[in-house]
Amino acid sequence: MENDDSEQNEPLSRFTTLPERISVRLHKQLMPGETIEFTLRSVVGSHTEGGFGGVKPGFSFGSARSGHVQNDQMGHPWLIITNQRLILVSKGLISFETRTFRFDQINSVELQQGVLSDKLLIQGMGVREVWEFRRKLRELSEKGAKYIQDKINKSMGDKNSQPSGGDPMNELKVRLAKGEITMDEFNTLKDALK
């Protein structure tokens, strides 16, 4: 019981403010113009990769037959959202691991709320991330999930609204490249433009 009280009395900043040692290392990895917009420390994190993903360092287990490898994150994993990507950081006593995802690489984000903790499931590019947050951080984990989803939606909107320069021929080429029209349709529409 005493442990539960001490957890409840922990300041919120312990879960939302990156420790200096992580912040310094992370800022060296940021791209020009990239800024950190949201951070949240999880209780534990893990990721599962498909057969084409390769193996990340850490404790790995899984079926060699299925080609899936699951890795648990050591230390206190951090979920970091920047203006350009999602960064997942795991800092242990002697390790520092980061995995990054552009928002257009993420297929889905889902928050599963439980009695004791909440789980954030992030899937994309053959990887499934599961990050668990304390229940007392529910408002922040909800905010993080919504923030990631908004960034995904924005990146998809940006892709769909890329200007073709107003030139109908360029627009046809873009539609062909995206797979929206076939080569036969392209040729028919190109002839119609002449």
Rank of each mutant, 00 (worst) to 15 (best):
E7P: 02
E7D: 11
F61S: 07
Q123G: 05
F103L: 10
I36C: 04
P57R: 06
F38R: 11
I148W: 04
R65Q: 04
R25V: 06
G157H: 06
P168T: 07
P19R: 13
K173E: 12
K178V: 01
N107D: 13
T82Y: 05
Y147Q: 03
M125Q: 13
A192M: 09
L176W: 01
V44I: 09
E139N: 00
D4G: 04
D167S: 12
N71I: 14
D5T: 15
F52A: 07
S155W: 03
Q84R: 15
S60I: 11
I122Q: 01
K146I: 00
L88Y: 12
R99N: 12
V43N: 07
P163W: 00
R41K: 11
F61C: 01
T100E: 15
Q84V: 04
E10R: 15
D72M: 08
N3M: 15
Q112F: 07
P57W: 05
E10T: 15
G62R: 03
L111I: 03
D167L: 05
R99P: 00
S63I: 02
P77Y: 03
N3C: 07
V55F: 05
S141V: 03
M156F: 08
I148D: 05
Q29V: 02
S161Y: 06
V24H: 11
V174L: 10
Q112Y: 08
V89R: 06
E34T: 11
N9K: 15
E142I: 05
G144L: 04
G179C: 02
K154P: 00
F101W: 14
I152H: 04
E129P: 03
V174E: 07
H47I: 07
V115R: 14
V24N: 12
I81M: 09
R25T: 04
P11F: 07
T48I: 11
T35V: 12
S90N: 14
V174R: 12
E185L: 05
D150V: 02
D118H: 09
Q73D: 08
E20G: 08
N107L: 07
S90Q: 09
R135V: 00
R99E: 15
G166D: 10
G53A: 15
E97H: 14
